[in-house]
Amino acid sequence: MLEVSGLNSFYGKAHILNDLSFTVGRGEVVALLGRNGAGKTTTMKSIMQLVHPKSGAVTFEGKDIAGYSAHRVARMGIGYVPEERRIFTDLTILENLEVGRQKPREDAPVWTVDALFEIFPNLSERRNNRGKAMSGGEQQMLTIARTLMGNPKLLLLDEPSEGIAPVIVEQMAKTILRFKREGLTVVISEQNLHFAGIVADRAIIIESGVKKFDGSFSELEKSPEIRDAYLSV
């Protein structure tokens, strides 16, 4: 479904991603692992075209989308949940969801406000409140729900467990597994190896923008030297 090949991305003069290549199959949940500053967020942004890669291709359903504007990428069915959440604090929860709304797609799960409120009951209670006084967990739920309103085929989740109470993280894991059951393809970036192991089928480890490992979690289990070298556990 998604193929990233030979990606090079820069922030100004800083070379962040270095010839990064990987693929994501339909219905797969892939975890992007690595330390702070390894290039996880830049990978997400380069797929979303919020950062335009300098070279390399991002192929989504057979089309190279490198150089597209972010809204076109979103309209093609890639949903992006940023690490810093970026909810619209001046808008109510319902209005936040409205911003994300797009037409249903034939080959992707269809979400409605009611269905999302059922998954995230906390949001339902406060639907007419503004996003100002929300906890980190509630903000994360709102960001995910807002992106799902676009009925994406592929969901990019950037560090969803960061800064969230452990109880909520557990709930979040269940939610992501539910997305998988609904047929959503997910790329999730994580520092929390345990959390990633629960939700994802496959792990990709990057360090300084270079891919160091690509395989199943059981393979990763067998090579503790990789884990120790590239992850801060």
């Binding site: 979303m48 919020l50 504007s69 972010a70 809204h71 979103a74 309209r75 992006y80 940023p82 970026r86 619209f88 604090t89 001046d90 808008l91 209005e95 936040n96 409205e98 911003v99 994300g100 797009q102 807002r146 992106t147 676009g150």
Partner: peptide, 24 residues
Amino acid sequence: TRIGILVRAATQDRTMVGALGVNQ
């Protein structure tokens, strides 16, 4: 209106509005 909601959202964070599929 939806337009108004988008306008207010863009007032706050136009990049995010774009990433949600709205043609800025």
